[in-house]
C-alpha cells in the first residue's frame, strides 16, 4: 500500500501570552511537537491520546486551518504548505473532516439540505443539487425527507450522519474523523462505526481516525499511534499493538480501560497502573515528558528526550528502555 498522507516532524506551537518583567518572553503551548506518521491508501490510521495531547491540532493543521510551526505534511507526495500559495480546490475537495461534536459543528439555522449543499456549492456547483443530496443522505442511511429538517430536530447519532454526508459531498479520498462518536451512547456509536466501515469499503476511503478510546481503536484501525503531550510515543499495526504494547504510557492506558469480559481482562497489562495527572502543556516536563508518571523511569529519562526507534518491523517506540544505547529489547 502506498502512503497517501505523510506528516514529517510536524510542530504546531501557540503563543498564548507573555511572561517576565518586561512581558517579552512568550508563553507557548507546544500542542504538537514533532510528529511523524503516514496514512496509507485505503487504511484506517488511529491516532489515540487523552484530551489535550494534540490530536485535534494535528487534524486542523492537515485541513489547513493552521499553518505548521515546523515540519510538513504531504498529500500524494505534494506538500500541503507551499509558502503563501493557497491550497488548490482539487486538494481541498479530497481532504474532509468530521468533527467530534455534531451539535456545534452543524449550523442550527440551516436545514440538512443547506448543510450538505454548502461544500457542493463551493467545489462543484450543480443546477439542481437535490438528487445528489438525497443520494448522500441515502449513503448515510437517512430518509430523503430529512432534507427539510433542522439539526435540533435530530438525535445525536443522526446529526453525526449528516456531518458524514457533508464530508462525503465532495467525493473525498481522505477523511479525518475527530472523535466522531465520543459524544454518543454505545448503541448509537456502533451504528455510526459500522456505517463508516461500509463507506470506506465502498468508496475506498482512507481514514485518520482520532479517538481516546483504545477498545474502539482495536476494532476499526489497521495501525495505531499513541500521542502524549504533543508527541507520538508508539506506532504499530493494530493487532501487534494490542498484543505487545511496549511504551509504559501505552501500558498505563491499556491497564485503565474498563472492560466487559474476562477475555479482555487478560489483555490488559498488569504491571502498570495509572498514576499522576497529565501536566500542563505550557510546562512540559524535561526529557521524556512522561517521566513524572512513569514507573520505569531511569536517571536518563528526565534529562534526554528519547528518539523514535523501530523495535520490530512496523513497530516504533519512543522510550529509553528501547534505545540502542540501552541494548534495545
Amino acid at each position: 500500500m502506498t502512503d497517501l498522507l505523510t506528516a514529517t516532524g510536524l510542530k504546531k506551537h501557540f503563543v498564548i501570552g507573555q511572561s517576565g518583567i518586561l512581558k517579552r518572553k512568550p508563553i507557548t503551548v507546544k500542542a504538537v511537537d514533532g510528529v511523524s506518521f503516514a496514512v496509507r491508501e485505503g487504511e484506517t490510521f488511529g491516532l489515540v491520546g487523552e484530551s489535550g495531547s494534540g490530536k485535534s491540532t494535528v487534524a486542523y493543521t492537515i485541513i489547513g486551518m493552521y499553518q505548521p510551526t515546523e515540519g510538513n505534511i504531504a498529500f500524494r507526495g505534494q506538500s500541503l504548505f507551499q509558502g503563501d500559495k493557497k491550497r488548490s480546490s482539487a486538494v481541498k475537495k479530497e481532504i474532509q473532516i468530521v468533527f467530534q461534536d455534531p451539535g456545534s459543528s452543524l449550523n442550527p439555522r440551516r436545514t440538512v439540505k443547506q448543510i450538505v449543499e454548502l461544500p457542493l456549492q463551493i467545489h462543484q456547483p450543480e443546477k439542481d443539487p437535490l438528487p445528489k443530496i438525497v443520494r448522500l443522505l441515502e449513503m448515510v442511511e437517512l430518509p430523503p425527507d430529512y432534507v427539510h429538517k433542522y439539526p435540533q430536530m435530530l438525535g445525536g447519532g443522526e446529526k453525526q450522519m449528516v456531518a458524514i454526508a457533508r464530508a462525503l459531498a465532495t467525493n473525498p479520498s481522505f477523511v479525518i474523523l475527530d472523535e466522531p462518536t465520543s459524544a454518543l451512547d454505545v448503541s448509537i456509536q456502533a451504528k455510526i462505526i459500522n456505517l463508516l466501515i461500509r463507506l470506506q469499503e465502498e468508496f475506498h476511503l482512507s481514514y485518520l481516525f482520532i479517538t481516546h478510546d483504545l477498545s474502539l481503536m482495536r476494532n476499526v484501525a489497521s495501525r495505531v499511534a499513541i500521542m502524549y503531550l504533543g508527541k507520538i510515543c508508539e506506532i504499530a499495526e493494530a493487532a501487534e499493538f494490542f498484543r505487545n504494547p511496549y511504551h509504559p504510557y501505552t501500558q498505563m492506558l491499556l491497564s485503565s480501560i474498563p472492560v466487559v469480559s474476562a477475555a479482555e481482562e487478560e489483555l490488559k497489562p498488569k504491571k502498570i497502573t495509572s498514576r499522576g495527572e497529565i501536566p500542563s502543556p505550557v510546562n512540559v516536563p524535561s526529557g521524556c515528558s512522561f517521566h513524572p508518571r512513569c514507573p520505569e523511569k531511569m536517571d536518563l529519562c528526565s534529562m534526554e528526550d528519547p528518539l523514535m526507534v523501530e523495535v520490530e518491523e512496523g513497530h516504533t517506540v519512543r522510550c529509553h528502555l528501547f534505545s540502542p544505547e540501552q541494548g534495545g529489547l
Binding site: 438525535g155 456509536q189 456502533a190 477498545s215 476494532n219 479482555e264 490488559k268
Partner: peptide, 22 residues
C-alpha cells in the same frame, strides 16, 4: 444483550450494529 454487543471489545472482531432507533 444489545448493549453488550455494541460495546467495542479489546479482543477485537468488530462491533455489532447496536440497537435500532433511539
Amino acid at each position: 444483550l444489545g448493549l453488550m454487543k455494541a460495546v467495542p471489545k479489546l479482543t477485537g472482531g468488530g462491533i455489532a450494529d447496536g440497537i435500532p432507533g433511539r
